[in-house]
Simulated scan of single mutants.
Amino acid sequence: MSTTDPAPGANVATLRKARGWSQATLARKAHVSLSQLSKMEIGDRALTPAVAAALGRAFGLGMDEVLGRASVAADEEQLLFALRSAMRDYDMPEHQDAPDGRVTAGLEAADQCRDAVDVAALLALLPALLRDATTDAHTQNTASAWSALADVYSTVYWLAARHRWMDMAELAVTRQRWAVEQQPNPVGAAFAARDRAGTYLNFGAVERGLDVVDRAIVAVQSAPLSPVDRDLAVGILNLRGMTLAGRLRDKETGGREAERHIQSAWRAADSVVRDVDAHGLTFGPKNTLTHVLATRVDLGRPRDALALTDDLDSALEGLPPTRVAPTRINVARAQLDVGDRDGALESLVEAFDVAPQMARIHPMGRELLRVLSSLHRRSNPQLVRLSRLSGMTL
């Protein structure tokens, strides 16, 4: 299988060959099984996040370079340039204020694009929205205005992280943290910490990310917040914490740390009762379930993950595509791990159908497509259709 943007496992082979290393050399440097590496490179086994992090350390590269950065269409390059320019001008408001309500409307539109995984539309609106929110924050200098600016930067982080544009992702979370610090905002600070921990996740430095999460939880618990706001902030941080714990190389430690965050997240979700949207994110019982499922897969417990899927349609009902599609991909990972190739393909189809643009940028989705194509070794209409969605050719 070949593509302009290679799937992660194929990209590893390219990186290894560029260094003139044998598979045995890379396996030794990364402390992974030679058999496992060989299968990942040829497409008989999916490259997992934990192994990708180990390979990145061996290469001396970040996870973005191991998994491969997602490219944008030629006509979107100017939008990306405009977004970077707006981030550079973080302390330089425009001379003319944005009309009343435009920032709020822009954030609502951005949230809708993000929830629907409409990355093309999101990239189109972010440069102007960021400039409007920057001007609004500097002009009004209120907690709500600075919080809105922080939310825009959080959305920029989300877009950058999805494409593995790690320089932009790191700058976005730095700007996000700066914005929430302009006025007292404990909940905003918690969400900023959640995104900062995400940059460590994206670079494979999960231990550091867990430190960020734990420090932020301590800060939230001592902040003057209502019980609802405290549970929301702690819950969001726990979701990030369990994801980070699932990626720890020592799975015994990972399981213990993940369980700590899982139990705390469930307690917070119980108090929230139903899933709510805040600062561009969703928290509640349903989204907690999706994160627990993903963590079980990352910990190498696919059967435990699949045990949560008895009524998955109901469990996902009401959640946005940005949560539904990755969950279907994680189910596909678990199914593939237990040898259910047909079930994995069906789950992957469901993921790409609910969020078609994710097919081009989600590294695990692309990796599963490559592996399923290799394992089926025959023409399959569903695989052909997914290859067209993803831009990958069989």
Rank of each mutant, 00 (worst) to 15 (best):
L299K: 01
A268L: 09
V276D: 04
W266K: 07
R274F: 11
L306G: 06
L289P: 00
S271L: 07
D340F: 09
D313F: 02
D270G: 14
P321G: 07
R303I: 15
H261I: 12
R260G: 13
D337G: 08
T288W: 03
L289Y: 01
E317L: 09
R301W: 11
R366I: 09
R341S: 10
P363I: 14
R328I: 05
A268C: 15
L369G: 09
V349F: 09
D353G: 04
R341G: 04
D270C: 06
E317C: 08
P356I: 12
A351W: 04
G318T: 12
G339A: 04
T295W: 02
G300C: 09
G284Y: 00
L319K: 00
S271K: 03
G343H: 08
D311M: 07
T322S: 14
D311T: 14
A307D: 15
V331T: 02
D337S: 14
D310A: 13
E259L: 14
D342E: 15
L319A: 05
I361Y: 03
L299Y: 10
W266R: 07
E259F: 10
S347P: 00
G300I: 04
A355G: 13
P363K: 02
A315P: 02
L369R: 00
I361S: 07
D311H: 14
R323K: 04
V354N: 05
V338G: 05
A355R: 01
V297S: 02
Q335F: 02
E350C: 07
T290A: 07
P326S: 11
M358I: 10
K286A: 14
R296S: 04
A332R: 00
V349T: 14
E350M: 11
L293N: 02
H362P: 06
A265R: 00
L289I: 11
A305Q: 04
V349C: 11
V331G: 00
S347V: 13
R366M: 12
R267S: 14
